[in-house]
Design a protein around this nucleic acid. Structure first.
Length: 159
DNA sequence: TGCAGTCTCGGCT
DNA sequence: AGCCGAGACTGCA
């Protein structure tokens, strides 16, 4: 794996910070966006590590191979939810209810949503692919603008 | 549109 | 240790 520490990816939308441990990514901090940027995505500076490359390709519309994820801090329930998130294919979305059912807790919907919100590595674990059943977006750490952006990027790439 | 049901987590007492 | 409120939700009335 890459060296432990923090990696910063500077983009036209702000700096994305990625925290890396011995065994993989353990944290990812997005710049807060209040609205979708009018400018096209652009990279100002980035490392050549697997994580920076992954994030860059993802935001450029590609479907890069997910980098290794380290040991995340969380309860068993949260880890189960995150594992369920990783199973969502690129370019598709799932409702919180479907996700709850998927992990074997069909009625623990709000709890599932809370676990999504506690996801320490947005982008890597695709919590933006989870939306409300009524078509609403739900929420997203770092701002809803990110969620709309990511969904837009992924879906525009879908055949 | 409104409200009760359902489950977890974190902060307080 | 136990209680209470809040949360990125749902489904029915």
């Amino acid at each position: 794996m890459c060296k432990p520490g923090a990696v910063t990816l500077s983009t036209g939308w702000g700096d994305i910070r990625i925290d890396v441990a011995d065994d993989g990514v353990v944290g990812c901090t997005l710049p807060h966006l209040n609205e979708i940027p009018s400018t096209h995505f652009s990279v100002i500076s980035a490392g050549d590590d697997a994580f920076s490359i992954y994030v860059r390709e993802l935001l450029e519309g590609g479907n890069p191979t997910r980098p290794a994820i380290g040991q995340l801090q969380g309860t068993e329930f949260q880890k189960k939810v995150w594992a369920g998130l990783l199973a969502i294919p690129h370019g598709t979305t799932l409702s919180y209810a479907s996700l709850a059912k998927k992990i074997g807790r069909p009625t623990a919907i709000r709890a599932t949503a809370s676990a999504c919100g506690r996801n320490p590595v947005p982008l890597i674990i695709p919590c933006h692919r989870v939306v409300a059943s009524d078509g609403g977006l739900g929420g997203f750490s770092g701002g809803l603008a990110w969620k709309r952006l990511l969904l837009g990027i992924e879906q525009s790439r879908r055949p």
